[in-house]
Amino acid sequence: MSQTNTPARAAIRRRRPFGDDVAKDVAKLQSAFINDAPAAIATLARLRAAAGTLAGSRLDILGVTAVPTEFLPRRLADDPEPVEHARHAALTLYAVHQQSAHDRGMHRDGYGFGQAIALLAAQSPSKDAVRRRFVAMGTAATFTEALHHCRGLVRLLRDKRIALDYGLLADDLREFQAPSGPDKIRSLWGREYHRTTDTTTTTGTDADADTTDSDSPKDQP
């Protein structure tokens, strides 16, 4: 079977400085992991284990997830700042995504979340099942709920080896936490999804995508 898992880009999105910083660190981890560096393998395992936890709650990964001071406000609140939540989420999601893909990187510059999900839907035996999960994430009322659905979709991307830009995702997750952020990011991801043209060339039969998530709430589609 010959398959290209590269989503077409309707338009090039540029990362912000915060996203660039996250992407730089992800790229370093990715290169070391693909080259079987023991330290990178261990770091990704710790990050993967921290997926779904609160930013700052795992002391064993703070050396990786800590946000550089230039992106933090001068006076820190008692609770983690939006940039801290966004960096923690992006790095731990990347670790989930990269798991078992030792021959290729699951972080790729320029590919937004909505575009990656559009390619996933195109390659799935049930495009509607993927779309329903995407819609469920889009209706999430809280950042925590949105991340829950995001993790499930990232697992499906991992299964199909479809990459995305984790710097862009970090920027999006930071913006999501702003007062008007959920509507803005849902609109952005939705437009990416619908504008992405399927240019995937597939020969042979793809394995069925598992569109179930064992830890999904039972009341979700």
Rank of each mutant, 00 (worst) to 15 (best):
S2R: 11
T4F: 09
T6N: 12
P7C: 08
A11T: 11
R13F: 12
R13L: 14
R13Q: 14
R16L: 14
R16N: 09
F18Y: 06
D20M: 12
V26I: 15
V26N: 08
K28V: 12
L29V: 04
Q30M: 06
D36H: 14
D36P: 00
P38Q: 06
T43I: 12
T43D: 13
L44N: 05
L44R: 03
A45D: 09
R46L: 13
A51P: 01
G52M: 03
A55N: 03
L59E: 15
I61F: 04
G63I: 04
G63R: 07
V64S: 05
T65V: 10
P68G: 07
T69Y: 07
E70I: 09
F71H: 11
L72P: 09
P73I: 10
R74W: 02
L76Q: 13
L76E: 07
A77Q: 10
D78F: 07
P80Y: 04
P80I: 03
E81Y: 05
E84I: 07
E84F: 06
H85I: 04
R87S: 02
A89I: 08
A90I: 09
T92A: 06
H97Y: 08
Q98M: 03
A101L: 14
H107T: 00
D109E: 13
Y111E: 04
Q115H: 06
A116T: 01
I117V: 15
I117K: 05
L119D: 09
A121M: 05
S124D: 02
S124C: 03
A129F: 04
R131Y: 10
R131Q: 12
A136W: 08
A141V: 10
T144P: 01
T144E: 15
A146S: 11
G152Q: 05
L153D: 07
V154M: 13
I162A: 03
I162G: 02
Y166R: 07
L168R: 04
A170Y: 04
L173N: 01
L173F: 15
Q177W: 06
A178Q: 12
P179E: 09
P179A: 06
S180M: 11
R186D: 08
S187L: 13
G190Q: 13
Y193R: 00
Y193P: 00
T196F: 02
T197A: 12
D198Y: 02
T199E: 15
T200P: 00
T202I: 15
A207E: 13
T211G: 00
T211R: 00
T212K: 03
D219R: 07
